[in-house]
Design a protein around this nucleic acid. Sequence first.
DNA 1: TGCCTTCATGGTTATATTGCCATAAAGCAC
DNA 2: GTGCTTTATGGCAATATAACCATGAAGGCA
Lengths: 107, 107
Amino acid sequence: MDAFAQPRYEARARIAKALSHPTRLLLLDALRQKDLCVCEMTELAGVDQSTVSKHLAILKDAGLVAVAKRGSMSVFSVRCQCLDGFFRCIEAVLEQNLKAQQEIVGS
Amino acid sequence: MDAFAQPRYEARARIAKALSHPTRLLLLDALRQKDLCVCEMTELAGVDQSTVSKHLAILKDAGLVAVAKRGSMSVFSVRCQCLDGFFRCIEAVLEQNLKAQQEIVGS
DNA sequence: TGCCTTCATGGTTATATTGCCATAAAGCAC
DNA sequence: GTGCTTTATGGCAATATAACCATGAAGGCA
C-alpha cells in the first residue's frame, strides 16, 4: 500500500470499526431517535453499565456521537446525519445476501 | 437488547466489521475501479498473498464482493453499488472531525 | 511428463477486542 | 456531613483478529 494512502485508509477503518459491533449499532439507532443518557442506554442494551460506557467512548472517539453533561448524567447525541447513508448501505447488502440465499434454495 | 433485535444488529455488525480494516478498504476501492485478480491486489496492498486472500474471503463472506474463476486466476468484483453511501458517510465523519480539530487549535 | 503461476488454507504468534467486576469521582437530596 | 445515583476507568480473562510462513491444489504451457 502506498505510504500516502495508508493513513487515509487507516482513518477510514477507525470509523468503520467503531460501527462494527452490534451493541454500538443498537445504541446509535436509539440515539437517532432521541438523545439518551448512559443509564437509559444501559437498560436498552441489557449489558453492564461499564460496558455501555466503553462502547459510547468508542463512538465518541470516532466522532460519531457527542456528549453533554447534565448534572450527574451524560447525555449523548448523534453527531452526524450521514449515518443514514451507512445504514442504507448495510441494509442493501443484507437484502441482497438474503435474495442470493433464496435463489440457491429455490433452484 | 431485545432478543428479536439482536440477530438483526449482529448481521449488520458482520457487514460493518468486514469494512473495518484498512487493507480491505483499499481493496474495495481498487475493485470499484475495475475487477482484479488476487495477484494484482497483492501487488497493490503490499502484504503477503495469503493475507490478501484472507481479506478477500472476509469481503466475500460478507457478500461485498463476488469471485469468478478465470483459469488459474480468481477475479474479484464488487457486488453492490451501495458502497458509495458507506464511503460518503465515512468521509463526512472524517471531514467533520477535522473541522472540529481545527476549531480547537484555532481557538 | 515437468515446471511455473495462481490461489486458498492450516499453523503459529502477537495484538486487539470485549465482557464483567470493583472502584472512584462527581452531582443531588437530605 | 451521610447516602444515593450516575458515570468513567483499571484489572483481568476469554475470545477474535491479523500477520507471516509453509504447503498443497489446480490451471497453463512447453
